[in-house]
């Protein structure tokens, strides 16, 4: 347990045994996803799947890209659009709102802050019906915008940004003021660059949220297949091509590329952003 002294031999052995067993069990689905996509059906469809057979091929990927039932390229484009639009929306709206909540003195500050916080408590699924009816009534049901419109602002983003801005050293703020630095210049040239870790954390989190979103794109794409995101495409593939597990796994690997990269290389930002903003 202790991190002060190096653990004894028994503890060390037990640690490695437990972590290895846990990794084998918990990461087998990941291994299956990534290796399975490169395996021909005879190697894959047996008990247990022959993940290490060595006869890897790209035919599942070719089949996944070429199959006509659920075209993956437009779905990839839609997912990218959704992830980036939601990321940009969250960062811009949250940073601006948090700036006003921290640096602009107004009696309305506290009620407005609580209004933002209250929206965090509303599960999206509670209001999905009125939102679906509203977006349909706007007549943009066939436009990509319909996939992201309800999600461009986020109360949790405002909260994270506000926490970050409040930790910004007051002396720097005062020094900037004495130098005659107005709100806009202070925000863009001093505050935002100074809060880059928190902004990166919010951006990574928002992109993951958008990219992995499922319920809303499922509703929007139900009336128009061309609005499939990769997540709804995976479900559609499963319904239409369930006899081809290799193709399914290849499709899933495609959906995982950006998120796996973000989880592996972006996790230190996530940790820093969340531990600074939400835990302490």
């Amino acid at each position: 347990m202790s991190r002060v002294t190096r653990p004894g031999k028994v503890t060390t052995t037990a640690t490695y045994v437990w972590l290895t067993v846990a990794a084998l069990v918990l990461l087998f689905p990941v291994l299956l996803t990534i290796l399975g996509g490169f395996l021909p059906a005879p190697a894959l469809v047996k008990q247990p799947p022959g993940l290490l057979d060595g006869h890897y091929t790209l035919e599942n990927y070719l089949a996944a890209w070429q199959q006509k039932v659920v075209p993956l390229l437009p779905a990839f484009g839609n997912s990218l659009f959704v992830g980036l639009a939601i990321m940009l929306g969250h960062v811009v709206t949250s940073a601006l709102a948090a700036y006003a909540l921290v640096f602009v003195r107004s009696p309305l500050r506290t009620p407005v802050f609580w209004l933002f916080m209250a929206t965090i408590m509303v599960p999206y699924e509670s209001i999905v019906v009125p939102n679906a009816l509203f977006v349909r009534s706007l007549g943009i049901g066939d436009n990509r915008l319909a996939l992201v419109l309800p999600f461009l602002a986020n109360g949790f983003g405002v909260f994270l940004m506000r926490q970050a801005f409040r930790q910004f050293p007051a002396e720097l703020r005062q020094a900037a003021q004495i130098d005659g630095c107005g709100h806009l210049r202070f925000l863009f040239t001093i505050l935002l660059p100074g809060c880059r870790p928190a902004i990166t954390a919010l951006a990574v989190w928002s992109f993951l949220q958008g990219w992995n979103m499922y319920f809303w794109p499922l509703i929007i794409s139900s009336s128009n297949n061309s609005l499939n995101t990769l997540q709804t495409a995976v479900f559609a593939l499963r319904s239409n091509e369930s006899s081809q597990p290799g193709l399914l796994l290849a499709g899933i690997t495609i959906t995982l590329i950006p998120t796996l990269l973000l989880v592996v290389f972006g996790q230190r930002w996530l940790v820093r952003g969340f531990t600074a903003g939400a835990v302490k």
Binding site: V30, T232, T259, V263
Partner: peptide
């Protein structure tokens, strides 16, 4: 596993 969406 954090990288997986619900459908994946």
């Amino acid at each position: 596993p954090f990288a997986y969406s619900a459908s994946a």
